[in-house]
């Protein structure tokens, strides 16, 4: 049985880590861009951001005052038992968000869409979102919090098989440029692209590709991996850099995730995880151990399974 107190304490820690510490994989990616950026203004912006990450860690303050819309991704091992069950788990995660809002502090971003009611704790109807996934042959749970900005940089479009790769490229470029001008997307960003699925899953896949895969990771399908690389380099070649200034720094990395879709369609979503790519993950065990993890390892072989039954042959690939 995984104790609820351990889940809450881990969630508290993850909330602070996500808000304050830029993840190492994103930081390394941005440092590489700082070395190659030739545009004066774009290079200045990137260096200011590198200074900012340092200041945030030194002062233990949030790296950006738009602290995003905190949410949770929970992966539950097939054999895991959670004290109090899923209801207690969700209470702990909501409490961690409310506590962090007061203690770090975070900006109380979450309001009612019509009445603009603000509980000053980032909790409300449907907030924080909590997404679930499962893992075979495991008795732990993994908690990941993502504090993604909520306004600019995402779009969805129903394409068709006739649009093909050139059409995919067009919508990718449209999204980069429209939100890249003036830096509304707060680039350089991790771009997540969702291809396929039903409409809502298409959005979910793209968002998870942006927020839950680390810079440098590749899709296991070699042709998709090649596309990821091509799109990353393409995005950095359009002449636009940080804040939409002249430069070559738009895309820290590009991740593509796919799901089977309607035979007549090719739905596509694009998401941009910004200069404050806030995420933090931990695996929590029943014996009280907690492993802080740099990689959420969300997309496992099990998550990307293709067949009807799970034979378990590759279930350890994510370990």
């Amino acid at each position: 049985m995984i104790p609820q107190s351990l889940i809450k304490a881990t969630a508290d820690q993850l909330m602070a880590k996500a808000a304050i510490e830029i993840p190492d994989d994103y930081l390394s990616g941005l440092e590489r861009m700082a070395d190659t950026e030739q545009g004066d203004l774009s290079a200045f912006v990137i260096r200011a951001m590198l200074d900012n990450y340092k200041a945030a860690k030194e002062d233990r303050r949030a790296m950006c005052a738009d602290t995003g819309v905190p949410r949770w991704y929970v992966k539950i091992g097939n054999e895991a038992q959670i004290e109090g069950g899923p209801i207690a788990l969700e209470t702990s995660l909501r409490r961690a968000v409310a506590d962090a809002t007061q203690d770090i502090p975070l900006r109380p971003n979450r309001v009612h869409p019509l009445w603009r009611t603000d509980h000053n704790n980032n909790c409300g109807i449907g907030a924080p979102e909590i997404d679930y996934a499962f893992h075979p042959d495991a008795d732990w749970i993994e908690l990941t919090t993502v504090h993604k900005g909520g306004l600019f940089g995402s779009d969805y479009r129903m394409l068709f098989p006739a649009d093909g790769i050139d059409g995919i490229k067009r919508f990718y470029l449209d999204t980069l440029v429209s939100f890249g001008k003036r830096g509304l997307a707060c680039q350089p960003a991790i771009i997540g692209i969702g291809l396929g699925g039903s409409k809502d899953i298409c959005m979910t896949l793209g968002k998870q590709a942006a927020c839950l895969r680390t810079v440098g990771s590749i899709n296991p399908d070699p042709k998709i991996a090649a596309l990821e690389e091509e799109f990353r380099d393409f995005g950095n070649s359009i002449g636009m850099g940080a804040m939409g200034f002249m430069g070559s720094s738009m895309v820290v990395d590009c991740h593509i995730e796919v799901g089977y879709c309607h035979t007549g369609g090719l739905p596509m979503s694009v998401h941009m995880f910004c200069l404050s790519s806030r995420r933090a993950s931990a695996r929590v065990y029943k014996d009280g151990r907690v492993d802080m993890r740099g990689d959420p390892n969300w997309f496992t072989d099990y998550m990307r399974r293709d067949g009807v039954d799970w034979d378990g042959a590759t279930s350890l690939a994510a370990e």
């Binding site: 912006v45 900012n52 303050r61 950006c64 738009d66 940080a242 804040m243 910004c274 200069l275």
Partner: peptide, 11 residues
């Protein structure tokens, strides 16, 4: 600048 030099501005 950035956007998001929140910690620098906070200082």
């Amino acid at each position: 600048v950035g956007y998001g030099t929140g910690a620098l501005l906070g200082r």
